[in-house]
Design a protein around this nucleic acid. Structure first.
Lengths: 146, 146
DNA sequence: CTTGACTCTGGAGTGTACTCCAGGGTTTAG
DNA sequence: CTAAACCCTGGAGTACACTCCAGAGTCAAG
């Protein structure tokens, strides 16, 4: 299966940049990877997985500090000691709270969408729609739209 | 019902700081509020609601730029024009994607928790548990823990 | 053995979202 | 009328998460 990659390929494989990967290493999110004879970082499949996990957790709104913790939990999946279980419990609670809040927002947005569709069907052309100007500025892409 | 508040009370009512509220105003998230004779900002119930909405949306991982957009949508709930409906649709899609990803994470954490509990019941004392050191640094509180 | 693509380190710079003054004016309780 | 508590503006400072160099070394192809 997948042979070890150097940082450039690892970056392409994960959708991160080489700078970001090096930054994550400095920040202690990755254990220092092996080096080739010439001093190049060498990433194995496991390390690629870890990078992808970081990216995913980040999209979910976790800070790097939190992700660092999550990585530990992930690494020693159920490897005893009650303190670890407590951390997992706390994380689980915050994740559930987040899901809940997002479901509320989903309901609100869904409601707005229906009201909006109904208005369009009814042919409401009265209002000036001051949002159009806002739409323009929406077109700038965000960090994750590669 | 609730009479208008000055910035200090508004801050207490929303859990924000006065500086943050002023910052949101500068950033264009709030339309400039009315002023008292002495030049003080005066916040009505509607504006308090808006501030609470900002806080909530932020906890859900929306950027201030996105929240600005959401505020517009919220303000003219279903007030026609298809472009608005498209924005809502896009938002709804990203919110749903986020919920999905978080539910995955929830499952993973739940799995880890069960494995962990089982290990503790079985009395697994072998591993050195390198996470304890991590627990210490977990004790610093985050921005929203007032 | 040179050229070009790739990588290294250390450090400076950027964008977002606040957070904290300084130096002033306003309001209210006593 | 004064002191304490509150508010004003403009601007500097901070934390986080990158992002971008400069100057130098490595390596595969021709």
């Amino acid at each position: 299966m997948a042979q070890p990659l150097r940082i450039g390929k690892a970056a392409k494989a994960t959708g991160l940049t080489v700078d970001t990967i090096r930054f994550y290493q400095k920040a202690g999110l990755l254990k220092p990877p092996a080096r080739s004879a010439g001093g190049y970082r060498v990433f194995t499949g496991i390390e690629i997985d870890e990078l992808q996990f970081i990216r995913k957790a980040q999209d979910l709104g976790f800070s790097l500090a939190e992700i660092k913790e999550l990585m530990h939990l992930r690494g020693q999946n159920g490897q005893a000691c009650p303190e670890v279980r407590e951390i997992i419990k706390r994380r689980l609670a915050t994740v559930r709270a987040k899901i809940n809040a997002l479901q509320h927002l989903e309901a609100e947005l869904g409601q707005a969408l229906r009201t909006c569709s109904r208005a369009i069907r009814a042919g409401a052309h009265g209002e000036p729609c001051p949002v159009i100007e806002q739409i323009q500025s929406t077109k700038k892409r965000s960090r994750h739209d590669h």
